[in-house]
Simulated assay, not measured.
Amino acid sequence: MMVGITIGDPLGIGPEVILKSLNNLSKYRSELLIIGSEGAFSFWNNFYNLNNSFTSVNSIEQLEEKLNKRWDGFLLFDVGLEFEEGNYFRSSEIAIKSIDISVDFLNLGIITSVVNGPVSKEGISNVIGEFKGHTWYYAKSFNIKDYNMAFYSDDIKVVLVTEHVPLRDVFNLITEERLLSTINNTVNWVKGIYLGKKEFKIGICGINPHAGEGGKLGSDEKIIAEALSKVNDKSVKFFGPLPPDTAFLEYKKQKFDAVICMYHDQGLIPFKLLHFEDGIDVSLGFPFVRSTPDHGTAFGLVGKNFASHRSMLNAIRYNLMFTSNESIPQE
């Protein structure tokens, strides 16, 4: 079982953080398949003096031949588009082609999970039209309807009911069906992370200040309570709807296994405050493991050798946790 790693935008910090992460992962070379531009990886590998070595292939036939033998360094699938320094359109072409190839490889069983380098949504949209992000694109490619964006660190796991939508739309999007799907995905996730554990605790945030304060500040929490009343998994104890301003304090106090948040900033402000450099973004509800570092392309940092690779390294280690027979600690 191999983990695919897509390059992200070759003119962003994706290649830098991937290459720096690989310096810490030589033990897992046989379990990793890098997907991107050989020219881009070679350029940035030399630029940052990182001394990673690669065996490059550019066809499925060549790849299958290598997989049946040993190879030197890390195995790299070249997408066949020439890297051009300063050409952002070409860079986005390489980014989306790497993602498309990962979709093909997931379907073929060549890889069983994927880690994505950061991309420019605007850049890829200029190439293919609409592109709302990795999670949306994979869900569309595999026709998955009930999925969630989640965030992972060693001590905090956050699941979002709604994602990149205007705040004014959140109330209409929080339906009982959506809540039950999110709860189901969250339960399956924590059970997959904590193998052997028998009992779980999951917090769920309210929407309004103080979780509505008994209806004085809004009654939207009723739909959350109704959804929770329909969950029959006796291995999970739910806490909520919780006042959002103290939900993460309750997380620490009760030692939750995860917390479900109603909208993007409700979950991401506390998560990024604590884990901006080392947290990762995870997709739930997919038939494969997918993660990505919890940061963007950071074009302004490119070439300065300042970019932290901890989030990318943790994303790769997260995926390896599901393919290796060992516990792999986060950075």
Rank of each mutant, 00 (worst) to 15 (best):
R310I: 12
S181R: 14
Y194M: 10
I156W: 00
L284Y: 10
G109M: 08
L108R: 15
Q330G: 10
V57M: 06
L75V: 08
T182I: 01
D233I: 04
P287K: 07
N45P: 00
D278G: 00
I280H: 00
N87V: 08
V282R: 03
A298M: 07
E226Q: 14
L160A: 07
S229G: 10
L160S: 03
L63D: 04
W136P: 09
V158D: 06
Y194D: 09
G285E: 03
R290D: 06
N143T: 09
A150F: 03
E93Y: 09
N172I: 00
S141C: 02
S91G: 13
K132N: 14
N45D: 12
N188Y: 11
I183H: 12
T323F: 02
W189S: 12
N24Q: 14
G109D: 09
F256D: 06
N107T: 08
K97N: 06
L179R: 10
A40F: 04
K255T: 07
N87Q: 12
N143H: 09
E31H: 13
Y137G: 01
F105C: 01
Y88K: 15
I280E: 00
H210C: 06
E16W: 03
I101D: 00
N45C: 02
G109K: 11
A95W: 10
K253S: 13
L179S: 06
T55C: 01
G192L: 05
S21R: 13
I204P: 10
A150G: 14
M262A: 08
D169I: 03
N325C: 07
A139S: 15
S113I: 03
L108I: 00
P118R: 12
T246V: 14
D169R: 12
S235M: 02
K121F: 09
D155E: 14
L22G: 05
V115M: 09
L228D: 04
E38S: 15
P287Y: 00
S37V: 08
N24H: 15
T55L: 04
S113A: 11
L11I: 08
G117V: 01
F288P: 12
S229C: 07
P293I: 12
V158L: 08
N319M: 02
S59P: 08
W71G: 02
L249Q: 13
V282C: 05
V127E: 01
L81C: 00
R168H: 14
D78K: 00
A258R: 13
V161C: 04
D155C: 11
R317A: 04
M262H: 01
V119W: 09
N116T: 15
S21H: 13
D257T: 03
K198H: 11
L273I: 11
I96C: 11
P243S: 14
S291K: 07
L301P: 04
H309Y: 14
D146Q: 07
L273R: 13
L249R: 11
Y318F: 15
L11Q: 15
F142W: 00
S308E: 08
S327F: 14
S235I: 02
G14L: 06
E250I: 15
N23S: 15
L179H: 11
F151D: 11
N46I: 07
N325D: 13
G215M: 04
G133F: 05
E277K: 13
I156F: 10
S30T: 10
I101F: 11
F77K: 00
D245Q: 04
G80M: 11
I110D: 03
L50T: 07
K222F: 03
N49M: 08
E16A: 08
V236Q: 07
R310K: 15
D104G: 01
A95V: 02
I7R: 07
